[in-house]
């Protein structure tokens, strides 16, 4: 078991507002962490800061990923080194087919690691299998990226991208929001398929629902940009029953 992500005393600003305030978190390979917390507690800000979104500025502290100081790496380098962000609101790119987009992403990663481009047949076999798993019809793959997709389709498409890109660290930002129960199960099966001894997941969620299907090793409660309590799945169940009040206003 090795260390994948280590966050030390992190402060992040968006514009002039400080959103993450003194966060500490360690994630090792094979682990699944869940971050729960009320709206506006800074959960998504953390996700964007790890991915390197230019609007999210690290004021102090350090994020180390697989031994690299993340602030020294570009957005695409982070991705190519295995950081994946499942978007809360996946972006539409009209006219650019899902297949072309995925292929560009996979080949960018391979190029970064000095590998040849994936052959068309290997790519298509892999894509077919994984899209089936995510219950995505073949016809979707030739449509524009997320163009006209329903909420559930967009989220399943995010997980498909994750499975195709085979990251080391997967951060899922409210992937369960707006999902019906069937889509949720499909998403969970995808995330569970991704879990192994070498990878790690950070699941950001508002509700405990998703955690019924993906059992996390750790549950953290986020409030005012920092972790105020850490526990196991039982903590998530307590939160579902009692809300956040008893922790945020003790």
């Amino acid at each position: 078991m090795s260390n994948i992500l280590s966050i030390k005393d992190l402060y992040v600003d968006v514009g002039d507002t400080s959103i993450v305030n003194g966060l500490n978190l360690k994630i090792s390979s094979g682990e699944t962490h869940a971050i729960m917390g009320p709206n506006g507690s800074g959960k998504s800000t953390l996700a964007k800061a790890i991915a390197g979104h230019p609007d999210y500025k690290i004021q102090s502290g350090k994020i180390t990923y697989m031994g690299n100081d993340l602030s020294a790496l570009s957005i695409e380098e982070r991705s190519n080194l295995g950081v994946f962000l499942g978007f809360q609101y996946p972006i539409e790119i009209p006219g650019l087919s899902n297949t072309a987009f995925l292929k560009a992403a996979i080949n960018a990663k391979r190029k970064y690691h000095g590998m040849d481009e994936l052959s068309a047949s290997e790519f298509l076999v892999d894509l077919k299998e994984k899209s089936k798993m995510m219950d995505i019809e073949q016809s979707f793959l030739s449509r524009g990226v997320n163009e006209g997709f329903s909420g559930g389709e967009k989220k399943r498409n995010e997980i498909l991208q994750m499975l195709m890109l085979e990251p080391t660290l997967s951060i899922l930002d409210e992937t369960d929001s707006g999902l019906d129960i069937d889509s949720m199960k499909v998403v969970a099966s995808g995330v569970n398929a991704f879990r192994n001894k070498k990878t790690a997941s950070l699941i950001i969620t508002h509700y405990e629902r998703l955690l019924n299907y993906i059992t996390p090793d750790y549950v953290h409660v986020f409030h005012d940009g920092a972790i105020i309590k850490t526990g196991d799945i039982q903590l998530a169940k307590d939160l579902e029953e009692r809300g956040y009040e008893w922790l945020t206003n003790p």
Partner: peptide, 14 residues
């Protein structure tokens, strides 16, 4: 949109 670029770049694309 900047968000379209960020989305692509998060997927490793320059």
């Amino acid at each position: 949109a900047d968000e379209q670029l960020f989305y692509c770049m998060q997927r490793g694309i320059s």
